[in-house]
Computed example of a mutant assay.
Amino acid sequence: MSERLRLTIAQLGWLNAALYWLARVLARTSGGRCSLYRYIFVAQYVSDTPITPLRGADIHITSPGAGDLLPKDYPRPAEVVRDRYAQGSRTLSAWRNGRLAGFIWLIQHAYQEDEVRVRYLLVSPHASWDYDVWVRPEERLGWVFRRLWESARHHLRQRDIRWTCSRISAFNAGSLRAHAQIGVVRLGHALFLRCGGWQWMVASMRPYVHLSRSSNVFPQLTFDSSALQEPPCHNSRKSATY
């Protein structure tokens, strides 16, 4: 067994490692027409307690709207951003020395995934979905993410949001490790296989299995955080998936 394979198994576990390598083989042999994704869905309690210590006074947080211009180096396509705003999403952006340093996206009620064809529905009015957390690589050892998450925490608490849900890639070792160290609640998982216009889904929640052959046909996964127990320690430390 090669050292690289050993490391992948150690970081992801046997199942996720096997699916990760399968995804690479599929992408290579199909010329990019086929792709495989495995998501793990989690929820984290939104604490009343600010993140401490809170530093990074030179980091400025803004909440741009749909009509605001994107920076030239914004790392997401303009059409994807337009669709997110059309769904009702809100973004918080971190700026440092006049340059975009990071962002996080938030949405309530429902979110249409833009990596695969699926819709996430949140049942509780006290829940939100956070997604696409990005921090500029050279800023990832600094205070950008803490400032972003503190702003997000404040924004969510003002709207009486108690739980924020998200999906993480089962192939992202750093994200898996970070989430294992904090107080998240696992909600389920799903596997998606896309080949051309076809998409197959197998999930741990209803509808469990789904086949889609066009962009306007997709499954809906429902999450209900109303029965989740608040953790004894409310000092939230949300991890960045970048």
Rank of each mutant, 00 (worst) to 15 (best):
H109I: 11
T91S: 14
T62Y: 11
R96Y: 05
E138P: 11
D114R: 15
I168N: 02
D132P: 05
E115I: 12
H189K: 02
W143M: 14
P53S: 07
P125S: 12
I51P: 06
V116E: 05
S175N: 02
D73K: 15
Y111G: 04
V123E: 13
T52K: 14
R167H: 15
R206N: 04
L54K: 09
K72Y: 13
W14D: 06
R33C: 03
L5D: 14
D73Q: 14
I161K: 03
R157N: 04
R117G: 08
F218P: 06
V133H: 13
C233V: 12
L187A: 03
V144W: 03
S30K: 05
Q112M: 15
A66K: 13
G196P: 01
A23N: 05
G197Q: 08
Y20G: 03
R194K: 07
G65W: 08
R117N: 13
A178F: 01
Q87E: 09
L70K: 09
K238E: 12
T91Q: 10
L141A: 15
L193H: 06
Q220S: 15
S226N: 05
D160A: 12
Q158E: 15
S128G: 15
Q11W: 06
I51A: 11
H60C: 10
D73G: 05
L191E: 03
A66W: 11
D160S: 14
M201W: 00
K238Y: 09
A57H: 13
E230I: 02
R38E: 03
S63Y: 13
S212E: 10
Y20W: 11
D83S: 15
V25P: 00
D160F: 12
D48W: 09
R90G: 09
A173H: 05
Q108N: 12
R206K: 07
S169H: 07
Y208N: 02
C233Y: 10
G56W: 06
S166G: 13
P50Y: 10
I9R: 14
S212P: 05
L121N: 09
G56M: 08
Y208W: 11
L36Y: 07
W200M: 08
V116A: 11
Y85L: 09
E3I: 09
L211G: 06
P71E: 06
D48G: 15
L36N: 05
D160P: 08
S169C: 04
R4H: 12
N235M: 04
Q108F: 07
L106F: 06
W14Y: 08
L148T: 04
R157G: 02
G65Y: 08
R159I: 13
S63W: 13
Q87N: 08
R117I: 10
W134P: 01
V46K: 00
I161C: 02
G32E: 03
D114I: 08
Y120N: 08
N172I: 06
W163D: 01
K72F: 13
G98I: 07
R194H: 03
K72C: 10
A18F: 03
V184W: 00
L70V: 10
N172F: 03
F223E: 02
V80G: 10
Y45P: 05
E3D: 14
I59E: 04
A66T: 11
